[in-house]
Amino acid sequence: RTCQHADLERLARESQFSVNEVEALYELFKKLSCSIIDDGLIHKEELRLALFQAPYGENLFLDRVFDLFDEKKNGVIEFEEFIHALSVFHPYASIQEKTDFAFRLYDLRQTGFIEREEVQQMVSAILLESDMMLSDELLTMIIDKTFADADSDKDGKISKDEWNVYVHKHPSLLKNMTLPYLKDVTTAFPSFIFNTEVED
């Protein structure tokens, strides 16, 4: 699989990246997509290996991130899907794009709402992941407080509109949605120069 010039230009148009940056990200993609199965596609194990330095082990959040990258829902991440998703994490991507992406991450069951059970499930997963203990009482208190703040119509679930307002009030929630590295990918992956098709 190679990336043709027309593909690079199209991906640059569809994202926050320049053609050279798309080329540089292709170097990263090639590395990730051949780490376990050398087929030019990122499998979940390969993403897990890159993020956790181990190819095995369940992680709720990794599953959600992988699902959101995998636009075609065919169980692998193709290069264009990789570019589309990473573009959301670009420092210049809009706050709205980041807010929407975060909503989709947290909407575990993809019902169009972030439900109380989902928030509880995510908090419990982190407690388990980090070996932290929290009493059920305290957990309920934290979720109650969060919903009192976010769920303005008090229907027990957070809608897209409620989420927008909530994130506006708590912008630090989008901290993970920006990767400063993405402003500098051509420097981070200078080897793209050997394969470049264009000069930006």
Partner: peptide, 25 residues
């Protein structure tokens, strides 16, 4: 410290932190 569940999720979940993709280059 964490009275906001989403604050807790976003700061504690390693699965949401994609920066290691670049750190492992």
């Amino acid at each position: 410290k964490f009275f906001n569940a989403f604050e807790f999720i976003s700061s504690m979940s390693s699965g949401f932190d994609l920066s290691s993709l670049f750190e492992s280059k």
